[in-house]
Simulated assay, not measured.
Amino acid sequence: MSDNLLTLSGVHTHIGAYHILHGVDLAVPRGQLTMLLGRNGAGKTTTLRTIMGLWRASQGRIVFNGQDITALPTPQIAGLGVAYVPENMGIFADLTVKENMVLAARGARNASAIDQERLQWIFSLFPAVEKFWNHPAGKLSGGQKQMLAVSRAIVEPRELLIIDEPSKGLAPAIINNMIDAFGQLKAKGVTILLVEQNINFAKRLGDTVAVMDNGVVVHAGAMKELAENEELQHSLLGLAL
């Protein structure tokens, strides 16, 4: 089996009249955390949504765990062990934290049917999820909503976790908490693909990195290499990490 859990080859995506992705080639190594970086509008979110089948690739091929998923509907892709946390977090504001978690644990009809050992592990990562268990999710702070969104994604074991800007708008203490959580997930063998604007976050967590610009991947390699090369950072991102 390939060392890459997910591979995109020549992927194009059109949204209406707009041609957003122009032949994306991306490899996500198994068991590693891959950072997807790039300026605003480079095509990062479109890439994630295309992987999940929320937007359909108009050309190219997406392979997950040896299976071609290019034309699969989103529920089938999720059923293969892929979890997606969108930038807007996708939680149900009118439901309680508990009800959000039960919905995400597809095999559970109620909270007691959730794997309790896994739930306690999630509580240890994100104490706010336990603290506000019976509160409406819509009343949570931005950081607490992000913790809930990630908790929902990992309430069942997943092969691949895809997350769009998890640190956006979060306080430094919560960002550190999030970094610790992703570190623990990686240690458990979960493969993670992360879009992130917080460069510190990227440097501390990333194993590999792909940089996008104008709908294509313009650089791919080790995160360490990019983090240590200011000239490369300027040319790719217009800034120094």
Rank of each mutant, 00 (worst) to 15 (best):
N4W: 06
L6S: 08
G10T: 05
I15A: 05
V24Q: 08
V24E: 08
L26G: 05
V28A: 03
G31V: 12
Q32W: 12
Q32P: 07
L37E: 01
N40Q: 03
A42L: 04
K44E: 01
T45H: 00
T46H: 00
M52L: 15
G53M: 04
R56N: 12
Q59A: 15
G60R: 03
R61V: 02
R61M: 03
I62A: 00
V63T: 12
G66Q: 04
I77K: 05
G79N: 12
G79D: 11
L80F: 09
A83H: 04
Y84Q: 01
V85I: 12
E87A: 06
M89N: 07
F92Y: 15
K98F: 00
V102H: 01
V102A: 01
L103N: 02
A108K: 02
A108L: 02
N110T: 11
I114L: 15
D115L: 03
I122E: 12
I122A: 10
S124T: 15
L125V: 10
F126V: 04
P127V: 07
A128Q: 14
A128M: 14
V129H: 12
V129S: 09
F132P: 03
S141A: 13
G142R: 08
Q144F: 03
M147C: 14
L148D: 05
S151H: 14
S151E: 13
I154E: 11
E156K: 09
P157C: 09
E159P: 04
I162M: 11
D164H: 13
P166K: 12
K168Q: 11
K168F: 10
G169V: 04
A173R: 11
I174W: 01
I175V: 15
N176C: 00
N177K: 13
M178K: 03
A181S: 14
F182T: 00
Q184D: 14
L185Y: 10
G189V: 03
G189R: 05
G189F: 04
G189H: 05
T191H: 09
I192K: 03
L193M: 12
Q197C: 09
K203Y: 13
D207P: 08
T208H: 15
A210H: 15
V211D: 07
G215W: 07
G215Y: 05
A220H: 14
G221F: 10
G221V: 10
G221L: 11
E228Y: 07
E230V: 11
Q233E: 12
S235Q: 14
L236F: 07
A240Y: 05
